[in-house]
Structures are given as structure tokens and as C-alpha cells.
Design a protein around this nucleic acid. Structure first.
Length: 571
RNA sequence: UGGGGCGUCGACAAACGGCAAGUCAGGAGUUUUUGGAGCUCCCAUUUGGAGGUUCGAAUCCUCCCGCCCCAGCCA
């Protein structure tokens, strides 16, 4: 009774338990499917994958792994008008990058078109499907409304022979788009609109990205999806909540077809994240209107965007595990995603010093011809990562933000007459702020250093309230750094009430490009695809598209938590 | 006025009739050569509401309230 979850032998330690894994466990216990568990991830190739898909991918592949089954990747490519090979390629790349492997099990609904036709013929023969010649507009009228039942189509009682003939001619290309449609004969008065004689095949004389011009009729989702699942021997067909009232139809088709494999459809709530949008339509709009640089813009919630930003697959997987799986519509705080990457990178990322907005510092009492190398720790969380040498000299840069001429009480950093520590280096004291005569802007600081504090400790035990990062002016590497923030200013930009025009809610500060940053020279020798902590700033990743050795460009993955920002906000 | 779902802390989310986990966020303190990280503590006497059943209810029953999805020849 009082046992801990890990005492349950049915459960692997660390694998999350939720209503879906419980349902599968019950099915297994009941002896269903001979103990097999086969799931599938079935994207339509009409857009790039986003973090919401990652939840589904982690769920489906995770379940397969947990129950020693397998997970198929199947492209639900039944609508050639919207689909492209570019999307297929990106989806495969993204799933792989997330760390999942479909092995031999890569499928396309389009590979089943012929069989789907055969099944359709079987339904016609069984008197359970018919060719309807109503126009799209008429069909809508006949469908009825949410509260009123629909009316039977006048074509509903065509003979089996006529239906067979017409369907054959639809397939042969004898009719124009929209002239006829094959429908399932179910119940025009059903309270569930999906059951009011749904379309199974429509005429679409459009070239398909895989089958070319071989077909001029294409199956509809409801018919194709369940049959595809059945063909592949799927045991658990997991989808999102909006398909819940399609389940009776899913079951109707498979029952009517009397197939031996009848998967169980289970629905869960799709992921929503604060300060972003998740609908493919809206993401496409952002791309098409040039609001972002592309599907892989580092501000996008797409897998490719997160990858380019510098997120790791494991941080995304951990995030997906943390958010859980349930049926309640919910919106996860993006801070949880940010926590997942900070947590990982805090442990693993080598540290460097980088000055984003340089302010020149001249050490008056430091010999002009002198240079020295100081020892710096690569990662205080992991001594095993060792130390490195950082060059030091008379002229340095510190962060503009780290100096104030007239600081408020809460400001601990450098100010005239104040002493602070330069990390791993010396205590310095500001003696003078040099200003531009016209603008009044501080352009340079004159400081003195205390030679006795080499390494950062004062032998007399005196303390300073701040430690600043810095870089030697003559040694630093120039680079561009891109600071990213939430793409939207509103927590729920997808909400009509909160944001009637979501384009108007785009955060103008979501991208800040700093072109004159200086990084300690060691960064040049660091692996190009590494993630780094720039001390006191955040975690950074060399932009895989724009960065090169002549001109390094870094993306800020996420900032460090900033308690001073809170202090400042409070006043 | 049809059908299908869902309501547990600011945000996620456990709890399966036995005395409201955990995580994020937030707060206080401690520590610190990153205002980072770590560590300690605080943060739902109560589960949308009202009744009922029971020794005992977030869990069972009744009614009510709120929110989401469905009227594509999209998926």
C-alpha cells in the first residue's frame, strides 16, 4: 500500500506514468495484441515540426521504448495541395535530431492509396459507401447544423453497381474536381457531425509530391488514418483532443471493414506555451510575412528554431517529460522550457568571459608593455573540466552596464572611487570616468589595480561587493551576438481575446543584435557546435548558419537568472 | 437547443474511498571570485459550486456553474 512508485515492477524507474501508459498497461494485462505495443507519429508534411510535436514524438517513441515495442514514422500525405518534400525532409531530420529512431518503419499514407481504394470498393459492395454528386455547398446544407439533424443526400440510395461504376470513373479521371465524392453511409441525424456521411475520397487533380500524377482522387483523413494504422499493425493510436469525436468514426470504418487489426485511439491535450504561438497556420504566416527569418529563426518554437537557437535534444526531452500528459487543455509557462536548458548547460557548458557592450578600462598603474596569463576555471560545477589561461593587460573592456557614475543604493558594481574584483584577475578601483564632451557619455574609465590581489583575493582580507567579467582589449576576439527574447509580448498570443491580431503582439525587442562584442581569445579554440556560458550573461551557441571563424556569431540560448534585474524592477 | 471532452496552488501535474506528491514561478535566509549555481525554509486546513452516500470523499451519486472542441470535398 505505502510503496513508492519505483517499487512497482511494472514501471521502469524514471519513466513517467500517465493515463495513456496506464491504459496500455491494462491492455497488456488483459492480454490484448499478444503483448505488442506499436505506436506511430503521423505528421502531415505541410509545415515544420514544433515543440508541440516534440511532446507527441516523445510520447509515442517513449511509450514504444517503455513497452519494448516500436514506433513508426508515417507521413499523413493525403492532401497534395498543401504538402511538400521540403517538409518531409525537415521532419525526418527533426525527429532524428530529437534522438529517436524509427528504424525500418518509415511509411507514407500515399503508399496505401491502392489498398485504400480496395477498401473503399469493399465498403461500396457492403452497401456502406456511396458516390454523392452534391456540390460542396449543397453538401454543407444537407449536413444540418449543430442542433438540427441533416438530410439524406438524394444520391444516397444509388445502386451498388452505379456506385462501383462512378467510383471507378472518379479514379480514372473522368470527372472534374468536386463533381463527385465518395461518402460513407452512416447517419445523417447523428449528434456527432463526423458521422453524417463523411467524405472518404475526393477528386483532386493535383500533382502529389510522391505519387506524381498517378492519382486524381485522394482519401480523406478519417478514412485513411485508421486504415493506415490498421495496415501497419498499430496497437495504440495516440492523437490530440480535437480528434476525440472522430473516434466513433475511426472505429466505424475499422468495424465496417472487418479488419483483424483494430488499434485503440487515445487522445491527449496538445501543448501550448506562453509567449508563443503553436498553430502551423500562424507559424507559416510569420514566415511568409517575413516577421521572422524563416522556419528556423531562433525565436520560433519550431524544432529547427530551437536547434538553431542552441537548445539541446535532451533538454527538450526533459521538458516534455516534466510537463506530463493529460486531457486538460493547458498552457505551460515557457520558463519551464528555459529551466530545462539552464539546468543542463549549468552542468555541462564551459565558461568564457564575453563583453557584450564594451567599455574601455585603462589601468593607470599597470605597465604598458606588460602582459600576463591568469588561471580561470572552465566550469565551477565540474572541476574535471579543468582550467585555462586568460590574457591580461593594461587596456581592458568591461560591460557598459557594470559601471554607473551615480549609482543607486542597490548597485554593487563599479562606480567612481569604488573597488571591485575582475574575475580571476585583480581588484581595481575607478579613479576617473572620461566623458565625451558633447554627449556626456562615459567613453573610458581610468582605474588603478592592486598587484597584491592577483587571482582575485586580497591578502588583507578586504572584500568587494562585485566581481566583473572582462576581456583584454589587445587579445579579445570580436564577434556579433544576438540576444533573443520571447517572440510575443502577450502570454497567450494565440488567444483571440488577448491578441485579436497576433502580428501586432510581436515583441519588437525579441531580437537585439550586438555587433561589437569582445570574447576572450580561448573561444577560438572551442568546438564550433559547442554551447558556452558567457559568465554573468547566459548560455550561447555559435549560429550554425551565419557564424564563421573570421566573424563568429553567437546566439543567446537563454540568459542566466538575473536577481539584480528583479531588484531594479522593485526600485 | 445537439454531440464530445475538461475543471486540484500563479503555471504544469500526482493522488484510483484512508487523511492534498513533485516541478516551474514567487518569497525569505544561507553561501559564493558569476547579483549564476548550491543549500534551508515558506508558498492549496482544501480540490469550480451546492447537496447527498460513507466512520471517512479531490476520488462515488445528484443538480448547478465555467471552459475547450465539432457544421472542410483540411489534418
Amino acid at each position: 500500500m505505502n510503496h513508492e512508485p519505483q517499487d512497482d515492477p511494472a514501471q521502469e524507474p524514471g519513466t513517467p506514468s500517465h493515463f495513456i501508459s496506464e491504459a496500455i498497461r491494462e491492455d497488456l494485462k488483459a492480454g490484448k495484441n499478444d503483448g505488442r505495443v506499436i505506436t506511430r507519429f503521423p505528421p502531415e508534411p505541410n509545415g515544420y515540426l514544433h515543440i508541440g510535436h516534440a511532446k507527441s514524438i516523445c510520447l509515442n517513441f517513449g511509450l514504444a521504448e517503455e513497452f519494448h515495442g516500436r514506433c513508426h514514422l508515417r507521413f499523413d500525405d493525403t492532401n497534395p495541395a498543401k504538402e511538400e518534400v521540403e517538409y518531409i525532409d525537415s521532419i525526418k531530420e527533426d525527429v532524428r535530431w530529437l534522438g529517436f529512431d524509427w528504424g525500418e518503419h518509415l511509411y507514407y499514407a500515399s503508399d496505401y492509396f491502392e489498398r485504400l481504394c480496395d477498401y473503399a470498393v469493399a465498403l461500396i459492395r457492403a452497401g456502406k459507401a456511396y458516390v454523392c454528386s452534391l456540390t460542396a455547398v449543397q453538401m454543407r446544407e444537407y449536413r444540418g447544423t449543430l442542433t438540427e439533424p441533416g438530410k439524406d443526400s438524394p444520391y444516397r440510395d444509388r445502386s451498388i453497381e452505379e456506385n462501383l461504376d462512378l467510383f471507378g470513373r472518379m479514379k480514372a479521371g473522368e470527372f472534374e474536381d468536386g463533381a463527385h465524392v465518395l461518402r460513407a453511409k452512416i447517419d445523417m441525424s447523428s449528434g456527432n457531425l463526423n458521422m453524417r456521411d463523411p467524405a472518404m475520397f475526393r477528386i483532386l487533380k493535383t500533382q502529389h509530391h510522391r505519387t506524381g500524377n498517378a492519382w486524381c482522387i485522394y482519401p480523406m483523413y478519417d478514412f485513411a488514418h485508421g486504415v493506415s494504422d490498421s495496415i501497419e499493425g498499430i496497437t495504440h493510436s495516440i492523437c490530440t483532443l480535437e480528434f476525440e469525436d472522430h473516434r466513433p468514426l475511426y472505429d466505424w470504418f475499422l468495424d465496417a471493414l472487418q479488419v483483424s487489426c483494430h488499434p485503440r485511439q487515445i487522445e491527449f491535450a496538445r501543448l501550448n506555451l506562453t509567449y508563443t504561438v503553436m498553430s502551423k497556420r500562424k507559424l507559416l504566416k510569420l514566415v511568409e510575412e517575413g516577421r521572422v527569418s524563416g522556419w528556423d529563426d531562433p525565436r520560433m518554437p519550431t524544432i529547427s528554431g530551437l536547434r538553431r537557437r542552441g537548445y539541446t535534444p535532451s533538454s527538450i526531452r526533459n521538458f516534455c517529460e516534466r510537463i506530463g500528459v493529460a486531457k486538460r487543455n493547458s498552457t505551460v509557462d515557457v520558463a519551464l522550457l528555459e529551466h530545462s536548458i539552464r539546468e543542463e548547460l549549468n552542468r555541462s557548458a564551459p565558461r568564457f568571459m564575453a563583453v557584450l557592450q564594451p567599455l574601455k578600462v585603462v589601468l593607470l598603474n599597470y605597465p604598458g608593455d606588460q602582459e600576463e596569463e591568469l588561471d580561470a576555471v572552465n566550469n565551477p560545477e565540474d572541476p574535471g573540466m579543468g582550467t585555462r589561461k586568460v590574457p591580461f593587460s593594461k587596456v581592458l573592456y568591461i560591460e557598459k552596464e557594470d559601471f554607473m557614475e551615480d549609482p543607486p543604493k542597490q548597485f554593487f558594481r563599479l562606480a567612481p572611487g569604488r573597488e571591485v574584483r575582475l574575475r580571476y584577475a585583480y581588484y581595481i578601483t575607478c579613479v576617473k570616468a572620461v566623458k565625451d564632451e558633447r554627449t556626456g557619455e562615459v567613453t573610458e574609465l581610468h582605474c588603478t589595480y592592486d598587484p597584491l590581489t592577483r587571482g582575485g583575493d586580497a591578502p588583507d582580507g578586504r572584500k568587494v561587493k562585485a566581481t566583473l567579467h572582462w576581456v583584454s582589449a589587445g587579445h579579445a576576439v570580436s564577434s556579433e551576438i544576438r540576444l533573443y527574447d520571447h517572440l510575443f509580448t502577450k502570454p497567450n498570443p494565440g488567444d483571440e481575446k488577448e491578441c485579436p491580431d497576433f502580428s501586432a503582439c510581436i515583441n519588437p525587442g525579441s531580437l537585439v543584435v550586438l555587433k561589437d562584442c569582445r570574447i576572450e581569445p580561448g573561444i577560438s579554440a572551442a568546438p564550433k557546435d559547442g554551447r558556452f556560458q558567457f559568465e554573468r550573461q547566459g548560455y550561447f551557441y555559435a549560429d550554425p548558419v551565419d557564424s564563421c571563424s573570421e566573424r563568429p556569431v553567437f546566439n543567446r540560448i537563454v540568459s542566466l537568472k538575473d536577481t539584480y534585474a528583479k531588484v531594479r524592477k522593485k526600485g
